[in-house]
Design a protein around this nucleic acid. Sequence first.
DNA 1: AATGAATGAGATTTCATTCAT
DNA 2: TATGAATGAAATCTCATTCAT
Lengths: 203, 203, 203, 203
Amino acid sequence: MSKEYSPKEKAIYEAVIELLEEGADLNNLTVAEITGKAGIGKGTAYEYFSNKEEMIAKALFYNSESFCRQLYKGVCKEKNLHDKVDYMMRKIEQEVPKAKCLLRLMNMLSDNTEISRRLQELFKEVFCAKEGIVEFVRNILEDEFRDGKTPSKDEMEYLVLDIYSKIICWVMVLNESKYEDITRRNSMRALILDGICREVRTI
Amino acid sequence: MSKEYSPKEKAIYEAVIELLEEGADLNNLTVAEITGKAGIGKGTAYEYFSNKEEMIAKALFYNSESFCRQLYKGVCKEKNLHDKVDYMMRKIEQEVPKAKCLLRLMNMLSDNTEISRRLQELFKEVFCAKEGIVEFVRNILEDEFRDGKTPSKDEMEYLVLDIYSKIICWVMVLNESKYEDITRRNSMRALILDGICREVRTI
Amino acid sequence: MSKEYSPKEKAIYEAVIELLEEGADLNNLTVAEITGKAGIGKGTAYEYFSNKEEMIAKALFYNSESFCRQLYKGVCKEKNLHDKVDYMMRKIEQEVPKAKCLLRLMNMLSDNTEISRRLQELFKEVFCAKEGIVEFVRNILEDEFRDGKTPSKDEMEYLVLDIYSKIICWVMVLNESKYEDITRRNSMRALILDGICREVRTI
Amino acid sequence: MSKEYSPKEKAIYEAVIELLEEGADLNNLTVAEITGKAGIGKGTAYEYFSNKEEMIAKALFYNSESFCRQLYKGVCKEKNLHDKVDYMMRKIEQEVPKAKCLLRLMNMLSDNTEISRRLQELFKEVFCAKEGIVEFVRNILEDEFRDGKTPSKDEMEYLVLDIYSKIICWVMVLNESKYEDITRRNSMRALILDGICREVRTI
DNA sequence: AATGAATGAGATTTCATTCAT
DNA sequence: TATGAATGAAATCTCATTCAT
């Protein structure tokens, strides 16, 4: 189903992600750092990618896509909006680094870097309406409104945006040290989840 | 009250912002570009800033701060939450480039760049609880709850986050071409505004 | 008589010449290009040649030698200087690419490249007084002076040089677009041929 | 009259020529070598030239042009063809390195290198019919035929080519060790010179 | 105080050559 | 024997920063 990656490609992808998790600055990553971490020669990377930007963009894309796919699978098993969003939030909580990577990707999409341009290309080429947080949220909402009252197009857009933004907030919360405390985190999760459900109900 | 800036400093700040508005990539800006745009010598910039990152970080900070200050002044004149948020959203709509700059600053705050480190220092040093969108939102909410029922600390945090995230969304919306259509924009503004008020009311 | 070449060796030689004819720059040819054109593996080339320079030098040498041999055969059949030189010039005209290759070889002989060093070695090792334009011209002249007045050693050197340089000119002429016109080319060929004969006669 | 060169530019030009005289291979010269020889920083070279090829091409051009200009001045003072050509040949003899540089330039003009492309551009931009050996020879011939019988266009072309090629031969002769012997060199010079005059007379 | 020419460290990228298969 | 994936040395070029003017 999903494209097969050569071991060297995967090594590059994972090296970039590890570096990101170690707190590296994606905009000033060097090819030497990446290939060093990946355990391959500098020249080898250029057998698989045509330049540094492609390496980094594809690495972000690869990881985000695989995380989104995971999320999607889990979400499909849940019955209603509440459980779906709850699943998502807990999954994100379990896999903060992957969620962080997704967040970084989304920030990068708009920073005018060469990397951002590559990312946009990747999204144009590969994207299939099933991955990507926004499309993802839209799917969940469409399921919810399958039968019963349907909101207007504008209201739908608003809801997508609202849920999307709350999930982003959730990722930001998870990165704040004050939410390392489990009870506070639980409490915040519940508030966000309730907020989302309330919005969908009342619109 | 606010620090005085020398003309050369301001020239640098404005040059950075102009470059940003022209679509430059802040992570690959060169000192030559900045000083060229500012109309001063490269060496001169180093009389006022100790390195490139400081120039960019301070430029973002300067502009965001001044935009926030403007927002704050306007918001103070409004009576209730609805009008305050409405004012904010319309102001942002009028000044997309400045809002964009603020958005960029916020993205940068978490990208581990040297610039991000400088920005964090600036916020530590200079921040005075009045500027910055988050603190800003908190102020508005505290005003709103001055008399009457006060939400719990957690609920308060949630509301801050919710409003903050919706404002970010608003900026993102304004950058999407499909919202160049005025009626759609108006409709979305109303939905977001109502959403915020509803959240505050029902919590 | 002539050394036998393995098919892979010949493939390399011909690949280099084809690339040269396609307008490649011999100094920046890559092994990948050569072996790609030759249709063999990169490693294989190193079974036959010890490095890139050897490949190119031998390829030039191979082609020049074979062209010279052809010329020599044809020239031997002619009786007198006029017919010999005429044959040569017409042959060169028919096979401009091969002549060009010879010209390139001669230029390279003096450009201090690693390739030029290899070429010089080849000429030292292999050269057998029968190939190579200079030696070639000398032979023709010696035939001419076999019986009758012999010029002094210096005069002989001068004549070799004169004929040699006129042949080089002929190759240059053939590469100029203004001599694509047949009548002009014929006229120039006649002038050069007459010039050569006159010099030999009058010295 | 002639363009002014900045000291750094001239330093680069002279460095390239010195390296050439020391037997360097122009196709594999490195920027580090050039700037090292020139006694300037690597980056400095890029303030004046946009890439390595430009440095080398302009260096060859600069030197050849100045040598041609010298030749031209001297030649103008001579009255007839014999003396003009004699002057040229003796001048070349005195300044073998400069002549060699000119020879190298002429070889390079046709080697499909990036350098060759730059050289061709330079000739297109700057050339003014007074420099360059070919144009140079044409001028001398036109002077010679000013009054008296004029040869046909084709004959004229032939003569230009013949003289040009003999001068090239002269440079090649000067690089051969067997002509380090003065009497042989004198003898060869006389033969070439006579040959040229004879050709012009008899055509 | 202001400048911008000069610098060289450091980044990306290429490619000849090796060597395991 | 033939291959081409892997390598890393080495090259070009950029650009933040300095410093003489």
